[in-house]
Nucleic acid binder design. Structure first.
Lengths: 227, 227
DNA sequence: GTTCAATTGCGTACACCGTACCCAGAAGAT
DNA sequence: ATCTTCTGGGTACGGTGTACGCAATTGAAC
């Protein structure tokens, strides 16, 4: 993890190190002190390249927007465009769970790369022929759905994957720890769901929900859904 | 805001005060020191009633689950049940924006009231005849969509409502501040959206997205969507 | 009423955080 | 060789959560 002692401090190195720390130990571990220590530099040196901690966080987000940029590999329809957007966003949220709390707490940082992605999505939607503002709102609805599902997916992953035990063992353990504060008998349906191995499998319903949403949009595009 | 000096410290008073502070000034303002000061008590006194700060936050969340508990006022179908759930959650997210970051960062706290709400939703879904696990996943998909849309709604509210100026003025100001770091000419579609008064109006597409989602579920319930 | 135990309130202190301020040293220009 | 500018970073301040230990209050038992 630690960087070379000699190489000069740059924004890129700082951002990359902060992302590496956040990936491994969570966002709160990526403090200015910690990043500086890992880079073998003084804390205040970072402020020569980054305005403050919030600025660093924003740069981390926009950095991911490059890595998970929307690409058209033979995309032929607005529907496939929205699917591409959803898949890239989903991957980003799963690979770097720390980005979701940032987006929620302070809004998506509209850096150049994030904006380029948005612009790409909007361009795909032009084929719908809908007014621009509706294109925007559809993009927001789909993005919102993806973000929301990623929240649940990340939560269940964080809960179940941490000790590296089998899902059934985890469920049993979770059940035990919950039963300590709560009378699970009062929540029979929840208890049964907790025992089910697919209780935390969201990918399947991510696809299902996305398809439902896109079907709704398609109906609107065809004009049968205008109110 | 400040509490009576004489009344004894209780969990309820602590939680209520923390919620009041978070509502007015954001979650980070509801620190242990601040809550204690507002209650005219010592900081460490709070720890007699609350395990730690995280515990306090969890109790705040479960407190809201009472206030925004799902109720059946003549609800006749699983579809209306999911709509009730969505509306209550939406209200909660809008009235108390601080709860979303908590849910995202550490998962929904499964306190007794939150669980009771979940149980209610599951019971509504029994009418679908789907396997329990699918009922669960549908609830999660709808909840996820609501949470995701609430993220965007809250972000745009926080951005646009703070100084109390008209939406157009805000858009112009936002455009100006963005243009300082970014060349907006490179993002023509985004620029046009930014100027539109409905750019931050999500309620309309919240309804649209929810309807699309429920239509998809309905198709599945009718068996026409089984793969 | 007195004594003892248990509960509640809280002051101090420590480790962490972001960062304002100022100074040392290196690099480049004149 | 001197002066300017830029980069690195040490110290210090005010914020955070909270471990520890002591005082005051309450409740029970005699």
């Amino acid at each position: 993890m630690a960087g070379d002692a000699k190489s000069p401090l740059t924004v890129e190195r700082i951002v990359a190190m902060a992302i590496a720390i956040a990936d491994n130990e969570g966002l709160e571990a990526a403090s200015m002190r910690r990043v500086a220590a890992e880079l073998r530099s003084g804390v205040m040196s970072l402020y020569r390249h980054v305005a403050n901690h919030e600025d660093l966080v924003h740069r981390m987000c926009d950095r991911l927007a490059i890595q998970y940029g929307y690409r058209d590999h033979g995309i032929s329809s607005w529907r496939n465009g929205l699917i591409e957007m959803s898949q890239r966003d989903w991957e980003m949220y799963i690979d770097h769970p720390w980005i979701l709390p940032i987006t929620v707490a302070s809004g998506p940082y509209l850096g150049p790369n994030t904006l380029a992605n948005y612009e790409w999505a909007c361009r795909q939607m032009e084929a719908t022929g809908l007014p621009l503002i509706e294109q925007h709102q559809i993009i927001m609805a789909v993005s919102g759905f993806v973000a929301g599902m990623a929240i649940f997916e990340n939560n269940s992953r964080r809960a179940s994957l941490q000790p590296g035990l089998a899902p059934e063992e985890w469920a049993a353990q979770e059940r035990g720890s919950l039963a300590r504060h709560t009378d699970l008998e009062r929540y029979p349906l929840f208890s049964r769901v907790l025992l089910h191995p697919d209780a935390t499998n969201f990918e399947k319903f991510f696809d299902f929900g996305l398809r439902s949403l896109l079907d709704g949009v398609e109906a609107r595009v065809r004009g049968s859904d205008l109110e």
